[in-house]
Amino acid sequence: MLSDRSKGSSYVYADYNATTPIGKNVKESILEVLSLQTFNPSSLHRRGQEARKVLQDARDNVRNFIGVPDNKEIVFTSSATEANNLVMAGMKEYQHVMSAIEHPSILNSARNPHIIPVNKNGVVDLVELEKILNKLKGNKILVSIMMANNETGVIQPIKRITEIVHKFGAVCHTDAAQSIGKINVNMEDLGVDLLTLSAHKFGGIVGSGVLIFDKKLEIKPIIFGGGQEKGLRGGTENVVAIAGLSAALHNIPELLVKMKEIEVLRDQLEYELPNLTNIFGKNSERLPNTSCIYMSGVKNDVQLMNFDLNNIAVSNGSACSSGKIEPSYVLLAMGATKEQAECSIRISIGWETKCKDIKKIINCWYSIYNQKAINSDSGDLY
């Protein structure tokens, strides 16, 4: 249960990149599936076939709303993390190439990866990508570049990257978990061979991820069982969470329209912060809802605590890393100093964010900053 403090109208949720509020139609869809009471899609009886239809409808929705070509397969996983692990661990015989700012589920599951640097604006160095691909020529190569970074919101030129990767006969994967519902994602247009999604990043519930991949690729399973999900993911499917994902996909067109308003709010937030504030990736194309902001001299855990005490939820970066406050490797890869990386937070707003919420975030930011100045004058460390 949520605490009273986090349920009130004065509570500001600005951590959409960690997880999103559940859509109304998603809740309705989940309740409808729960009313079936028994659901194993592998069962041959009527109840089992009802559950199987939920999965098939969800696959159809993924295909329709994400622009998935007919030559691609769709497999449900428990999360984008599992889907990313399946790509890396299931394609071990490939040389793994990835950017320095990939999600830990990619970086930590890769085999001896070749790392592509990013520039100070957080964009992958395409010249270095070509150099690495040229060096690895003759090998089976898998390149994984996230579509948009979860900490800075910086969007990568995936279509151009895919063209370069295919020129060298390599395979291209993109983790699009942070992009869905914020910018247009069309797999056919991007041209990638594999693509990862996560339901709870666009109004679904935790427990459902998707891996889409070219049928010609051979991927080995990492979870063994009864041969579910094309033999790539053993275990009974989470029908409830998948039904939620299916419903959330219907909301994407509306969310994309809403993002125009959200971008205005994000820009208002950044405009009203002092000039000495550094906003990482500001000179790059970014997700319309994301700001990664440096506050000089105030550690991010102190900022988070103060925001939380004022009923505002923000993040120090990837929610997957919460509990181990350390400098962001993403910001360090962009050339940030250790102090900058330790004093930066992520504000990610969304479809329930209002103008008054932005004003409250700004006022709280100044309160924290001014308190830092008072403490500095008194000789205290903040």
Results as ranks from 00 to 15, higher is better:
residue 7 K to G: 12
residue 9 S to W: 06
residue 19 T to P: 00
residue 20 T to R: 11
residue 22 I to R: 09
residue 32 E to I: 06
residue 37 Q to T: 11
residue 44 L to C: 08
residue 46 R to N: 09
residue 46 R to C: 01
residue 47 R to I: 03
residue 48 G to R: 10
residue 56 Q to G: 04
residue 57 D to T: 14
residue 61 N to H: 13
residue 68 V to W: 09
residue 68 V to K: 11
residue 70 D to C: 02
residue 74 I to Y: 02
residue 97 V to Y: 04
residue 102 E to K: 00
residue 104 P to C: 00
residue 107 L to S: 11
residue 110 A to W: 02
residue 115 I to Q: 06
residue 118 V to M: 03
residue 120 K to G: 02
residue 127 V to N: 10
residue 134 N to I: 01
residue 139 N to G: 01
residue 146 M to Y: 03
residue 152 T to G: 00
residue 152 T to E: 00
residue 158 I to N: 13
residue 164 I to R: 12
residue 179 S to D: 04
residue 182 K to T: 01
residue 184 N to E: 15
residue 199 A to R: 02
residue 208 S to P: 12
residue 218 E to C: 12
residue 223 I to L: 12
residue 232 L to E: 07
residue 235 G to V: 13
residue 236 T to A: 12
residue 237 E to L: 02
residue 252 I to Q: 02
residue 256 L to I: 14
residue 256 L to C: 13
residue 261 E to Y: 12
residue 262 I to N: 03
residue 269 L to M: 13
residue 270 E to V: 15
residue 272 E to S: 12
residue 274 P to M: 09
residue 275 N to F: 04
residue 300 N to R: 13
residue 303 Q to H: 01
residue 312 I to T: 12
residue 319 A to N: 03
residue 321 S to M: 06
residue 321 S to W: 01
residue 324 K to M: 06
residue 327 P to A: 11
residue 329 Y to N: 12
residue 337 T to L: 07
residue 343 C to E: 03
residue 355 C to Y: 14
residue 356 K to V: 15
residue 357 D to V: 02
residue 372 K to N: 13
residue 377 D to Q: 09
residue 380 D to Q: 14
residue 382 Y to F: 15
